[in-house]
Design a protein around this nucleic acid. Structure first.
Lengths: 172, 172
DNA sequence: AATGATTTATTTATCAATCAATAAATAAGA
DNA sequence: TCTTATTTATTGATTGATAAATAAATCATT
Protein backbone atom coordinates (compact mmCIF):
# COMPACT_ATOMS: atom_id res chain seq x y z
CA UNK A 1 0.00 0.00 0.00
CA UNK A 2 1.25 3.46 -0.90
CA UNK A 3 2.94 5.44 1.82
CA UNK A 4 1.23 8.47 3.24
CA UNK A 5 3.42 10.98 1.46
CA UNK A 6 2.88 9.22 -1.85
CA UNK A 7 -0.87 9.53 -1.55
CA UNK A 8 -0.60 13.18 -0.61
CA UNK A 9 1.60 13.70 -3.63
CA UNK A 10 -0.88 11.98 -5.92
CA UNK A 11 -3.76 14.03 -4.55
CA UNK A 12 -1.92 17.29 -5.22
CA UNK A 13 -0.97 16.15 -8.68
CA UNK A 14 -4.51 15.23 -9.64
CA UNK A 15 -5.95 18.27 -7.94
CA UNK A 16 -3.87 20.47 -10.21
CA UNK A 17 -5.72 19.34 -13.30
CA UNK A 18 -9.13 19.28 -11.64
CA UNK A 19 -8.75 22.82 -10.32
CA UNK A 20 -7.26 23.99 -13.60
CA UNK A 21 -10.03 22.58 -15.73
CA UNK A 22 -13.03 23.42 -13.55
CA UNK A 23 -11.88 26.40 -11.51
CA UNK A 24 -11.80 26.59 -7.72
CA UNK A 25 -15.52 26.71 -7.06
CA UNK A 26 -16.69 24.14 -9.59
CA UNK A 27 -13.98 21.69 -8.62
CA UNK A 28 -15.21 19.39 -5.85
CA UNK A 29 -13.12 17.45 -3.40
CA UNK A 30 -14.98 14.36 -4.58
CA UNK A 31 -13.64 14.84 -8.09
CA UNK A 32 -10.11 15.27 -6.83
CA UNK A 33 -10.48 12.16 -4.69
CA UNK A 34 -11.83 10.11 -7.57
CA UNK A 35 -8.98 11.15 -9.85
CA UNK A 36 -6.49 10.28 -7.15
CA UNK A 37 -8.12 6.91 -6.51
CA UNK A 38 -9.11 7.79 -2.97
CA UNK A 39 -12.36 8.42 -1.13
CA UNK A 40 -13.53 11.98 -0.71
CA UNK A 41 -13.24 12.23 3.09
CA UNK A 42 -9.71 10.91 2.93
CA UNK A 43 -8.59 14.10 1.21
CA UNK A 44 -9.33 15.85 4.49
CA UNK A 45 -6.88 13.59 6.21
CA UNK A 46 -4.09 15.42 4.41
CA UNK A 47 -5.57 18.89 4.07
CA UNK A 48 -7.54 20.71 6.73
CA UNK A 49 -10.01 22.01 4.18
CA UNK A 50 -10.52 22.72 0.51
CA UNK A 51 -8.68 26.01 0.79
CA UNK A 52 -5.53 24.39 2.12
CA UNK A 53 -5.62 21.85 -0.68
CA UNK A 54 -5.84 24.63 -3.22
CA UNK A 55 -2.95 26.50 -1.63
CA UNK A 56 -0.81 23.39 -1.92
CA UNK A 57 -1.79 23.10 -5.56
CA UNK A 58 -0.94 26.74 -6.17
CA UNK A 59 2.45 26.33 -4.51
CA UNK A 60 3.19 23.46 -6.84
CA UNK A 61 2.20 25.38 -9.97
CA UNK A 62 3.83 28.63 -8.93
CA UNK A 63 6.97 26.78 -7.96
CA UNK A 64 7.37 25.40 -11.43
CA UNK A 65 7.15 28.84 -13.03
CA UNK A 66 9.49 30.30 -10.43
CA UNK A 67 12.08 27.57 -10.93
CA UNK A 68 11.86 27.93 -14.68
CA UNK A 69 12.92 31.55 -14.48
CA UNK A 70 15.36 31.04 -11.64
CA UNK A 71 17.60 28.67 -13.49
CA UNK A 72 17.90 30.82 -16.61
CA UNK A 73 21.30 32.35 -17.15
CA UNK A 74 21.66 34.34 -20.35
CA UNK A 75 23.56 37.48 -21.39
CA UNK A 76 21.67 40.71 -20.80
CA UNK A 77 20.86 41.35 -24.43
CA UNK A 78 19.21 37.95 -24.74
CA UNK A 79 17.74 37.57 -21.27
CA UNK A 80 14.19 38.72 -21.94
CA UNK A 81 13.91 36.77 -25.15
CA UNK A 82 15.28 33.65 -23.49
CA UNK A 83 12.85 33.99 -20.60
CA UNK A 84 9.99 34.56 -22.97
CA UNK A 85 10.77 31.35 -24.76
CA UNK A 86 11.12 29.52 -21.46
CA UNK A 87 7.69 30.74 -20.43
CA UNK A 88 6.17 29.61 -23.70
CA UNK A 89 7.71 26.20 -23.13
CA UNK A 90 6.17 25.91 -19.67
CA UNK A 91 2.82 26.84 -21.15
CA UNK A 92 3.13 23.95 -23.55
CA UNK A 93 4.39 21.37 -21.08
CA UNK A 94 2.24 22.43 -18.10
CA UNK A 95 -0.58 24.41 -19.63
CA UNK A 96 -3.08 23.72 -16.84
CA UNK A 97 -0.77 24.93 -14.13
CA UNK A 98 0.10 28.17 -15.87
CA UNK A 99 -3.49 29.03 -16.72
CA UNK A 100 -4.55 28.28 -13.16
CA UNK A 101 -1.89 30.56 -11.71
CA UNK A 102 -2.80 33.40 -14.05
CA UNK A 103 -6.47 33.12 -13.16
CA UNK A 104 -6.05 32.68 -9.44
CA UNK A 105 -6.44 36.40 -8.77
CA UNK A 106 -10.14 36.06 -9.52
CA UNK A 107 -10.83 33.77 -6.57
CA UNK A 108 -12.67 35.78 -3.96
CA UNK A 109 -11.72 33.67 -0.96
CA UNK A 110 -9.82 35.93 1.38
CA UNK A 111 -7.30 33.32 2.51
CA UNK A 112 -6.56 32.29 -1.04
CA UNK A 113 -6.28 35.84 -2.28
CA UNK A 114 -3.67 36.63 0.34
CA UNK A 115 -1.73 33.51 -0.59
CA UNK A 116 -1.88 34.37 -4.28
CA UNK A 117 -0.77 37.90 -3.49
CA UNK A 118 2.39 36.61 -1.83
CA UNK A 119 3.13 34.28 -4.74
CA UNK A 120 2.71 37.04 -7.32
CA UNK A 121 4.87 39.35 -5.27
CA UNK A 122 7.57 36.68 -5.02
CA UNK A 123 7.61 36.21 -8.79
CA UNK A 124 7.56 39.94 -9.45
CA UNK A 125 10.42 40.60 -7.02
CA UNK A 126 12.56 37.82 -8.41
CA UNK A 127 11.94 38.98 -11.98
CA UNK A 128 12.78 42.55 -11.06
CA UNK A 129 15.97 41.49 -9.33
CA UNK A 130 17.03 39.34 -12.23
CA UNK A 131 16.50 42.14 -14.73
CA UNK A 132 18.20 44.65 -12.49
CA UNK A 133 21.25 42.44 -12.00
CA UNK A 134 21.43 41.95 -15.76
CA UNK A 135 21.67 45.71 -16.09
CA UNK A 136 18.35 46.04 -17.87
CA UNK A 137 16.96 49.58 -17.46
CA UNK A 138 13.55 50.01 -15.84
CA UNK A 139 13.80 46.50 -14.40
CA UNK A 140 10.53 46.74 -12.45
CA UNK A 141 8.59 48.06 -15.40
CA UNK A 142 9.99 45.27 -17.53
CA UNK A 143 9.01 42.69 -14.92
CA UNK A 144 5.49 44.10 -14.78
CA UNK A 145 5.24 44.01 -18.57
CA UNK A 146 6.39 40.41 -18.46
CA UNK A 147 3.57 39.47 -16.10
CA UNK A 148 1.07 41.50 -18.11
CA UNK A 149 2.00 39.55 -21.21
CA UNK A 150 1.49 36.32 -19.29
CA UNK A 151 -1.99 37.47 -18.32
CA UNK A 152 -2.77 38.39 -21.92
CA UNK A 153 -1.62 35.00 -23.16
CA UNK A 154 -3.84 33.34 -20.58
CA UNK A 155 -6.93 35.26 -21.63
CA UNK A 156 -6.20 34.52 -25.27
CA UNK A 157 -5.86 30.81 -24.47
CA UNK A 158 -8.86 30.53 -22.22
CA UNK A 159 -11.20 32.52 -24.45
CA UNK A 160 -9.79 31.07 -27.65
CA UNK A 161 -8.85 34.44 -29.10
CA UNK A 162 -5.50 33.82 -30.78
CA UNK A 163 -5.61 37.28 -32.36
CA UNK A 164 -4.70 38.68 -28.95
CA UNK A 165 -1.28 37.06 -29.01
CA UNK A 166 -0.39 37.52 -32.66
CA UNK A 167 3.02 39.11 -32.55
CA UNK A 168 3.20 39.13 -28.78
CA UNK A 169 6.60 38.10 -27.52
CA UNK A 170 8.48 39.57 -30.46
CA UNK A 171 9.98 42.26 -28.31
CA UNK A 172 10.08 43.24 -24.61
CA UNK B 1 -44.76 51.15 -7.14
CA UNK B 2 -41.91 51.00 -9.59
CA UNK B 3 -42.66 49.79 -13.08
CA UNK B 4 -41.33 46.47 -14.25
CA UNK B 5 -38.47 47.90 -16.25
CA UNK B 6 -37.43 50.04 -13.32
CA UNK B 7 -37.11 47.01 -11.08
CA UNK B 8 -35.15 45.12 -13.66
CA UNK B 9 -32.88 48.10 -13.98
CA UNK B 10 -32.36 48.29 -10.24
CA UNK B 11 -31.61 44.58 -10.04
CA UNK B 12 -28.93 44.84 -12.74
CA UNK B 13 -27.45 47.89 -11.08
CA UNK B 14 -27.17 46.25 -7.68
CA UNK B 15 -26.04 42.96 -9.17
CA UNK B 16 -23.05 44.72 -10.69
CA UNK B 17 -21.61 45.53 -7.30
CA UNK B 18 -22.55 42.23 -5.72
CA UNK B 19 -20.91 40.24 -8.52
CA UNK B 20 -17.93 42.57 -8.59
CA UNK B 21 -17.30 42.34 -4.88
CA UNK B 22 -17.96 38.64 -4.34
CA UNK B 23 -17.28 37.08 -7.72
CA UNK B 24 -19.74 35.00 -9.74
CA UNK B 25 -19.83 31.91 -7.55
CA UNK B 26 -19.86 33.57 -4.14
CA UNK B 27 -22.50 36.05 -5.16
CA UNK B 28 -25.94 34.68 -4.42
CA UNK B 29 -29.19 35.71 -6.02
CA UNK B 30 -30.48 36.32 -2.51
CA UNK B 31 -27.82 38.97 -1.97
CA UNK B 32 -28.67 40.66 -5.24
CA UNK B 33 -32.35 40.61 -4.32
CA UNK B 34 -31.72 42.06 -0.89
CA UNK B 35 -29.63 44.90 -2.31
CA UNK B 36 -32.31 45.63 -4.89
CA UNK B 37 -35.03 45.59 -2.24
CA UNK B 38 -36.76 42.59 -3.77
CA UNK B 39 -37.30 38.98 -2.79
CA UNK B 40 -34.96 36.33 -4.11
CA UNK B 41 -37.42 34.42 -6.33
CA UNK B 42 -38.52 37.63 -7.95
CA UNK B 43 -35.12 37.97 -9.57
CA UNK B 44 -36.05 34.90 -11.61
CA UNK B 45 -39.05 36.72 -12.91
CA UNK B 46 -36.73 38.92 -14.94
CA UNK B 47 -33.89 36.52 -15.64
CA UNK B 48 -34.22 32.87 -16.57
CA UNK B 49 -31.35 31.90 -14.32
CA UNK B 50 -28.28 33.20 -12.55
CA UNK B 51 -26.24 32.93 -15.71
CA UNK B 52 -28.56 35.22 -17.67
CA UNK B 53 -28.46 37.74 -14.88
CA UNK B 54 -24.70 37.73 -14.98
CA UNK B 55 -24.65 38.16 -18.74
CA UNK B 56 -26.88 41.21 -18.41
CA UNK B 57 -24.51 42.59 -15.80
CA UNK B 58 -21.53 41.95 -18.05
CA UNK B 59 -23.21 43.68 -20.97
CA UNK B 60 -23.73 46.70 -18.79
CA UNK B 61 -20.12 46.83 -17.61
CA UNK B 62 -18.61 46.04 -20.99
CA UNK B 63 -20.84 48.59 -22.64
CA UNK B 64 -19.50 51.33 -20.45
CA UNK B 65 -15.90 50.53 -21.35
CA UNK B 66 -16.78 50.21 -25.02
CA UNK B 67 -18.61 53.53 -25.09
CA UNK B 68 -15.77 55.23 -23.30
CA UNK B 69 -13.36 54.30 -26.06
CA UNK B 70 -15.87 54.75 -28.87
CA UNK B 71 -16.47 58.43 -28.25
CA UNK B 72 -12.80 59.36 -28.07
CA UNK B 73 -11.58 61.44 -30.96
CA UNK B 74 -7.98 62.54 -30.74
CA UNK B 75 -5.12 63.10 -33.21
CA UNK B 76 -3.05 60.01 -33.92
CA UNK B 77 -0.04 61.10 -31.92
CA UNK B 78 -2.17 61.58 -28.81
CA UNK B 79 -4.72 58.81 -29.29
CA UNK B 80 -3.15 56.11 -27.14
CA UNK B 81 -2.35 58.49 -24.33
CA UNK B 82 -5.85 59.94 -24.42
CA UNK B 83 -7.41 56.49 -24.36
CA UNK B 84 -5.15 55.43 -21.51
CA UNK B 85 -6.32 58.38 -19.46
CA UNK B 86 -9.92 57.64 -20.33
CA UNK B 87 -9.48 54.08 -19.14
CA UNK B 88 -7.95 55.24 -15.87
CA UNK B 89 -10.92 57.52 -15.39
CA UNK B 90 -13.38 54.67 -15.89
CA UNK B 91 -11.45 52.64 -13.34
CA UNK B 92 -11.90 55.42 -10.83
CA UNK B 93 -15.56 56.13 -11.55
CA UNK B 94 -16.69 52.53 -12.08
CA UNK B 95 -14.00 50.44 -10.44
CA UNK B 96 -16.24 47.45 -9.71
CA UNK B 97 -17.40 47.12 -13.29
CA UNK B 98 -13.91 47.27 -14.76
CA UNK B 99 -12.44 44.75 -12.34
CA UNK B 100 -15.35 42.41 -12.94
CA UNK B 101 -14.89 42.54 -16.71
CA UNK B 102 -11.17 41.91 -16.44
CA UNK B 103 -11.72 38.90 -14.19
CA UNK B 104 -14.60 37.38 -16.11
CA UNK B 105 -12.33 35.13 -18.15
CA UNK B 106 -11.80 33.01 -15.04
CA UNK B 107 -15.43 31.91 -14.79
CA UNK B 108 -15.64 28.30 -15.89
CA UNK B 109 -19.30 28.31 -16.87
CA UNK B 110 -19.41 27.43 -20.54
CA UNK B 111 -22.25 29.78 -21.43
CA UNK B 112 -20.63 32.67 -19.66
CA UNK B 113 -17.22 31.99 -21.14
CA UNK B 114 -18.65 32.14 -24.65
CA UNK B 115 -20.41 35.41 -23.87
CA UNK B 116 -17.24 36.89 -22.40
CA UNK B 117 -15.32 35.74 -25.44
CA UNK B 118 -17.62 37.69 -27.73
CA UNK B 119 -17.36 40.80 -25.59
CA UNK B 120 -13.56 40.68 -25.49
CA UNK B 121 -13.46 40.14 -29.23
CA UNK B 122 -15.75 43.12 -29.76
CA UNK B 123 -13.51 45.37 -27.70
CA UNK B 124 -10.36 44.07 -29.34
CA UNK B 125 -11.76 44.54 -32.85
CA UNK B 126 -12.97 48.04 -32.16
CA UNK B 127 -9.65 49.01 -30.60
CA UNK B 128 -7.75 47.57 -33.54
CA UNK B 129 -9.95 49.39 -36.03
CA UNK B 130 -9.58 52.66 -34.19
CA UNK B 131 -5.81 52.39 -34.08
CA UNK B 132 -5.66 51.33 -37.69
CA UNK B 133 -7.80 54.23 -38.85
CA UNK B 134 -5.60 56.58 -36.89
CA UNK B 135 -2.65 55.29 -38.89
CA UNK B 136 -0.96 53.72 -35.90
CA UNK B 137 1.42 50.95 -37.02
CA UNK B 138 0.86 47.43 -35.70
CA UNK B 139 -2.68 48.35 -34.71
CA UNK B 140 -3.61 44.86 -33.55
CA UNK B 141 -0.51 44.46 -31.47
CA UNK B 142 -1.16 47.83 -29.90
CA UNK B 143 -4.73 46.85 -29.12
CA UNK B 144 -3.56 43.62 -27.52
CA UNK B 145 -1.03 45.49 -25.44
CA UNK B 146 -3.79 47.85 -24.35
CA UNK B 147 -5.86 44.95 -23.06
CA UNK B 148 -2.84 43.33 -21.44
CA UNK B 149 -2.20 46.51 -19.53
CA UNK B 150 -5.80 46.52 -18.37
CA UNK B 151 -5.38 42.98 -17.09
CA UNK B 152 -2.19 43.95 -15.28
CA UNK B 153 -3.86 46.92 -13.63
CA UNK B 154 -6.67 44.66 -12.48
CA UNK B 155 -4.35 42.12 -10.87
CA UNK B 156 -2.43 44.93 -9.20
CA UNK B 157 -5.68 46.37 -7.83
CA UNK B 158 -7.21 43.10 -6.72
CA UNK B 159 -4.07 41.73 -5.08
CA UNK B 160 -3.03 45.11 -3.71
CA UNK B 161 0.35 45.09 -5.46
CA UNK B 162 0.81 48.71 -6.60
CA UNK B 163 4.39 47.96 -7.62
CA UNK B 164 2.98 46.19 -10.65
CA UNK B 165 1.60 49.39 -12.10
CA UNK B 166 4.41 51.78 -11.18
CA UNK B 167 5.23 53.48 -14.42
CA UNK B 168 2.60 51.64 -16.41
CA UNK B 169 0.76 53.88 -18.82
CA UNK B 170 3.72 56.15 -19.45
CA UNK B 171 4.07 54.91 -22.97
CA UNK B 172 2.19 52.61 -25.40
C1' DA C 1 -66.96 58.46 -9.05
C1' DA C 2 -67.74 53.78 -7.31
C1' DT C 3 -67.58 48.90 -8.03
C1' DG C 4 -66.11 44.71 -9.61
C1' DA C 5 -63.15 42.03 -12.83
C1' DT C 6 -58.78 41.10 -14.55
C1' DT C 7 -54.16 41.44 -15.13
C1' DT C 8 -49.60 42.58 -13.29
C1' DA C 9 -46.35 42.73 -9.57
C1' DT C 10 -44.40 40.60 -5.61
C1' DT C 11 -43.98 37.50 -1.63
C1' DT C 12 -44.08 33.22 1.31
C1' DA C 13 -43.00 28.80 1.61
C1' DT C 14 -40.52 25.09 0.05
C1' DC C 15 -37.96 21.64 -2.84
C1' DA C 16 -34.29 19.06 -4.63
C1' DA C 17 -29.60 18.92 -5.21
C1' DT C 18 -24.94 19.60 -4.03
C1' DC C 19 -21.00 19.79 -1.17
C1' DA C 20 -17.65 20.26 2.41
C1' DA C 21 -16.81 18.20 6.52
C1' DT C 22 -17.15 14.81 10.71
C1' DA C 23 -17.36 10.54 13.07
C1' DA C 24 -17.37 5.92 13.44
C1' DA C 25 -16.00 1.62 11.64
C1' DT C 26 -12.79 -1.53 9.27
C1' DA C 27 -8.67 -3.30 7.15
C1' DA C 28 -3.81 -3.83 6.98
C1' DG C 29 0.79 -3.97 8.61
C1' DA C 30 4.37 -4.01 12.19
C1' DT D 1 -1.89 -6.09 19.87
C1' DC D 2 -1.28 -1.53 18.53
C1' DT D 3 -0.82 1.80 15.24
C1' DT D 4 -1.49 3.52 10.65
C1' DA D 5 -4.20 3.77 6.60
C1' DT D 6 -8.59 4.05 4.54
C1' DT D 7 -13.59 3.53 3.90
C1' DT D 8 -18.70 3.80 4.89
C1' DA D 9 -22.15 6.31 6.44
C1' DT D 10 -23.97 10.61 7.60
C1' DT D 11 -24.77 15.50 8.55
C1' DG D 12 -25.55 20.31 8.31
C1' DA D 13 -25.57 24.13 5.55
C1' DT D 14 -26.27 26.51 1.09
C1' DT D 15 -28.24 27.54 -2.99
C1' DG D 16 -30.68 27.91 -7.26
C1' DA D 17 -35.10 27.33 -8.62
C1' DT D 18 -40.43 26.41 -8.58
C1' DA D 19 -45.18 26.86 -7.28
C1' DA D 20 -48.78 28.71 -4.99
C1' DA D 21 -50.66 32.63 -2.70
C1' DT D 22 -51.35 37.60 -2.02
C1' DA D 23 -51.28 42.41 -2.98
C1' DA D 24 -51.36 46.15 -6.07
C1' DA D 25 -52.56 48.39 -10.12
C1' DT D 26 -55.42 48.84 -14.34
C1' DC D 27 -59.54 48.92 -16.68
C1' DA D 28 -64.31 48.46 -17.98
C1' DT D 29 -68.94 49.41 -16.75
C1' DT D 30 -72.55 51.41 -14.45
Amino acid sequence: MAAREDKKEIIIEKAVSVFAQRGYYKATTAMVAKEAGVTQPYVFHFFANKEELFKAVMDRAFGRIYDTFAKIDAPADQLIETMGHAFEEVIQTHRDEVLMVMQAHAISEEGIREHVRKLFKTIFDSLSLKFERAGIPEAEKTAAHFIGTGLLITVAEVLDLPQLTKGVGDDG
